[in-house]
Design a protein around this nucleic acid. Structure first.
Lengths: 227, 227
DNA sequence: TCTACTGACATGTCAGCGACATGGCGGAAC
DNA sequence: GTTCCGCCATGTCGCTGACATGTCAGTAGA
């Protein structure tokens, strides 16, 4: 799990990736407290890279510092869900509109990956892998639009949304729906129809939002909501 | 300049604020290289807080790391201007729309501060102080909308825009225009007219964008463009 | 039951070591 | 004489370890 023989870009990146994945998979549950030394011991890394990683994740909104006390995994509130999906609904359709008519082989490749990557509804790791592919797909679309800042902002939002969706995806399998939604979006992008692309993106966001909201309001047996 | 007797929330915050201000005022010109030890010696702080501050500013897009080589102040390209103002144009009108009808005394106070704060077109520090008040005003409006993530994203964009505007503001005094633009926006907010507020915000962004573009395409005697 | 104290624990910071990339210098080949 | 190549000195980050500081939980005492 510590991936000691990776090609090691640097330890900070490793620590960031490990922690981010653990948080998004809810292996570190919302509301859980974590300590630098604890993470350092667990990962085998030093405290400095762990500290830098936590600072970065705090900047991304996934953890919050408790001065002199430690760090806490940001809880997921209804307000957070409103904020994340509200912002996604604002910028993602526009990103799709900008990308319309600019699609190339790379985008279709990303699509292929996400479409063929199913998941096991009862396994958070599997669901996260699916969501990571989904994130990569949407970020790739945003990058096609040419606005790197928009793509970056969206990537951060999608990371937060992924954590929320891990809760929702465990409730029911939505692979099929997402595939058709992606298909609609890609068709619009290839056709260069900006309005249709924006509409497809908005529809997908609305569906995701509904699923998360439903999962939190009607917690099923398999849905575990932290904090 | 080092403010040694401040109430010291922590050194990282101090280093971040000092560096950010130096970059936004173009005291650290775009393209300039900076070293951790150099900043540490200059500010009297240790390397650790300086390093953390640089990492955070890199996350904000104001500096870029050169592994094993140092850090460089992010240059300002035409593409950057398009991206920043394009994204502002996307989210800021919506922020104004959300804030419509929710204004309170605090917003008017911010308004008052920014309106009474003139600047000297030939002094980058003075222009930056004006822009900081302008940023605070717009962020306050965004926060009234209730979406903290939207407000945070906007704050970051406004910081980047401020650096670009420092170049443009030195070309000509735009205090009067901004005051009337703010007046229009506030009137719409108080009246609860979301469409009018969004329109006013969009108009102000377009004006700022035009000024920056003009300043870069037709560099005046007083406009210094780094890198 | 409430208060003050003490111990443990976690962060915040600093000084130092090793690794790596760059630029300049000298020498050899043409 | 000119050009090119390899070596070395220099400067910087990336990371480690240790110390100082601040907070909280648990406990003894009034």
């Amino acid at each position: 799990m510590t991936a000691p023989l990776s090609l090691a870009p640097n330890l900070t990146e490793q620590a960031t990736a490990q922690l981010r994945r653990a948080i998004l998979a809810t292996r570190l549950a919302p509301g859980a407290t974590i300590s630098e030394s604890g993470v350092a011991d667990l990962t085998g890394l030093g405290k400095a890279p762990v500290r830098a990683a936590l600072a970065r994740l705090a900047d991304e909104g996934l953890v919050q510092p408790l001065p002199r006390r430690g760090w806490v995994v940001s809880p997921v509130t209804v307000r957070d869900i409103h904020e994340v999906f509200g912002l996604r609904a604002l910028i993602e359709p526009e990103a799709a509109r900008l990308a319309a008519g600019r699609v190339d082989a790379a985008a279709l490749e990303q699509l292929d990956a996400v479409c063929r990557c199913g998941y096991d509804p009862s396994d958070a790791e599997s669901a996260l892998a699916f969501l990571e592919a989904n994130t990569a797909f949407h970020v790739a679309v945003a990058e096609l639009g040419g606005n790197r800042r928009l793509a970056r902002t969206l990537a951060r939002l999608l990371d937060e949304a992924a954590r929320m969706l891990v809760l929702g995806l465990s409730a029911r399998d939505r692979t099929g729906e997402m595939q058709t939604e992606h298909g609609t979006l890609i068709a619009a992008l290839v056709a260069g129809d900006g309005d249709a692309a924006a509409h497809a993106a908005a529809a997908e966001i609305a569906a995701s939002r509904a699923m998360v909201t439903e999962a939190l309001l009607n917690p099923c047996s398999t849905a575990r909501v932290g904090a």
